[in-house]
Every structure is written in C-alpha cells, then in structure tokens.
C-alpha cells in the first residue's frame, strides 16, 4: 500500500469576536491508498475543520490554516489557494467530499444529472452525452432505481437517503484516489444509514479508493475503518488500528467514547462535563477537566504529542504513554 496523504502539524484557527479559536491544533496523520481511516470525536472537536482545511474549503475569513503541510502526491495542499487552478484540479477529481447535510448540500436549482455531469465535464475530456451515461451508470451503482429518469430529477424530488446516494455517486464519479466522507450518514435514519454505509464500503473497496470517514459514531468506524484517529478539542489524542483501539483504549477519552457506544443490555455511560473552550487553551491535556484518572503530573508535565505505545497504536495521554509514572 502506498502513502496517499501525509498531514503534518496541521493547525487551523478562526478569528471570532471573543478571540482566536484554534479549531485544529497541530495534528498529523496519514492515509494510505485504498484504506478507510476513521476520524472520531464529539461535535466541535475539529474533525470536519481538519478535513475542510485539507480541501482548502475553510471559509476565509474568518478561518485560516496557520501551520502544517498536507502532502498529496507531490503537492502540499495547504500551500494552494482556494481558487487556484491546481487545487481545482485536485478537488472533486483526485480528492472528493461527501457532506453531512443531504438536504442542503445539493443545489436545489439544478437537476441531479447537471450537478453530477458537470464534474466530469470539468475534469475529464468527455462529451455531455457520455457524461450523462456515466452519471446514469453511477446512479445505478449507488442504488438509485430507474436512474435514466431520476437523473433529470431535482433534489427536492428525492428523499434524504436518495440524495445522499447522489452525493456518494457524485464523490465517486471522477474515480478519485481519496474520498472524505464528513458525517455522511449522520442525518439519516438508522436503517438507511446502514444501507448507505454498506454501499459506500463496497464501492470504495471495489474501486480501491481510500476514504476518510469522519463521524462521531465510534461504532460505525469500528465496523468499516481500517484505522482510527480519535480527536478531542482540536487534537488527535489517540491513533491506531480498529483492533488496537477497541481492545485497549489508551486515552481516557477514547475509553469513555467506547462506553458511549450503545450495546444491548448495557447502560450507556455519558461523559461528564463539556469539551473545553478552544480560545486561549491551556498547555495541559484538554481532557483534563473531565478526566477521572487525572493526576498531579498531568498538570505539571503535560504530553503535547502523540506517542507511539505499541504497533501502530499511539496516544497523547501522559499516563498511558509511559511518559509519566503511574502514581495511583
């Protein structure tokens, strides 16, 4: 497996009236071709922002990528401007995105065919007619019944699930190397969610497309992803294969997250407290106020980086990474 994307020290900030919000704080991760990487975390932990940053879609102002590199092929995506030609050639063509809101992410004024085929027309030298055929084919692949006639539907004529299928088809249509699915199924109800995930999984495996699956649902990630990055308050606080993390969560936050996954016969345990404010963050572990294992050393000698513990499993927790001795 070859390396597809290498993100190093990505930091994104937003200027707000109350001060500068560091939404993504110095994160590093990689994506190999063909693998599915899960990014998990609570809402507002910076998972979406990190992905948008890589795509150059951070609304600017107020957002700004202030540090880091994201090497994709030979290009550092973070060096490219949002409107630049190079970026446009990558977006949609080499890396595509699926967004969370199926209801609003499609243009209400254009037919499905128009919205999908314009990508082909933009990136591939192809006629309108051929593009339409490819669109219909793709709609079939994502499970839209009667794609020939539905291709000319407007988004409002479709259900939420169908729309999200269209979004998936749209992301797949240029056969990109990487798809970023940003909470792609969150807004859908459970059965449709499952169908869609199954379909997406099959599709990317079939096309050997890498996928970054951003979600707050650890269960989903556990089922489909190869590797998981757990994010909290803008940082990746734990990283490893599904197996490693599921079997032995190192970070107290990850531990709590796993307890949050509903399982039959078990009481769901909520994480007490709220995520910290991202303005003027202290240098200590961001999870500290909510951590039930916190110790003196957590205050005195905080670990700022992911530390490899074993295999591919790494964590930022000072207690578990061996950086500090267990005092309890």
């Amino acid at each position: 497996m070859s390396r597809l994307l290498t993100v190093e020290g990505l930091t994104t900030e937003f200027k707000t009236e109350r001060g500068i919000v560091r939404a993504v704080n110095n994160i590093s991760y990689t994506v190999d071709s063909g693998e599915i990487v899960g990014v998990v975390g609570e809402s507002g932990c910076g998972k979406s922002v990190s992905q948008m940053s890589i795509m150059g879609l951070i609304p600017s102002p107020p957002g700004k990528v202030v540090a880091g590199t994201a090497i994709f092929g030979n290009t550092d995506l973070l060096k490219l401007k949002k409107e630049s030609k190079e970026m446009c050639e990558i977006r949609g063509n080499r890396i595509s995105m699926i967004f969370q809101e199926p209801m609003t992410s499609l243009n209400p004024a254009l037919t499905v065919n128009k919205q999908m085929s314009e990508m082909l027309l933009e990136h591939k030298s192809i006629s309108k007619k051929e593009a339409r055929e490819r669109v219909i084919d793709m709609l079939r692949q994502v499970g839209i019944p009667d794609p020939e006639s539905r291709a000319d539907d407007y988004p409002h004529q479709m259900s939420g699930g169908m729309r999200q299928r269209v979004m998936v088809g749209m992301a797949m249509i240029c056969d990109p190397a990487l798809i970023i699915a940003d909470e792609a199924t969150t807004a859908l109800d459970a059965t449709i969610q499952a169908q869609l995930l199954e379909m997406m999984n099959n599709l990317v495996r079939e096309h050997h497309t890498a996928m970054v699956m951003v979600t707050h649902n650890l269960g989903i990630v556990a089922r489909y992803a190869d590797r998981i990055n757990v994010m909290y308050a803008g940082s990746i606080i734990e990283s490893g294969t599904v197996k490693e993390i599921w079997a032995n969560p190192l970070h107290p936050y990850t531990e709590s997250l796993i307890h949050c996954v509903p399982q039959l016969g078990q009481k769901v345990e909520a994480i007490p407290g709220m995520p910290p404010s991202l303005i003027n963050r202290p240098p200590t572990c961001p999870f500290l106020p909510r951590c039930k294992y916190r110790q003196k050393c957590c205050f005195e000698d905080p670990v700022q980086e992911l530390t490899l513990v074993e295999g591919t499993h790494s964590t930022m927790c000072a207690l578990r990474s061996g950086g500090a001795k267990n005092e309890q």
Binding site: C88, R91, F99, N107, M170
Partner: peptide
C-alpha cells in the same frame, strides 16, 4: 454560505463556474 456552494467548490469548479452556475 449555503452548503451546496461548498459542494460546488468541492467538485473542483473554479470561482467563475461556482458563482455563475451555483
């Protein structure tokens, strides 16, 4: 600020096409 404009950008359309079409 609409989501579908972000979608349009994510498709790799240039500014002119995003504005004029979407």
């Amino acid at each position: 600020n609409e989501d579908y404009v972000r979608t349009a950008w994510s498709k790799g359309l240039n500014e002119k096409k995003v504005v004029m079409k979407h």
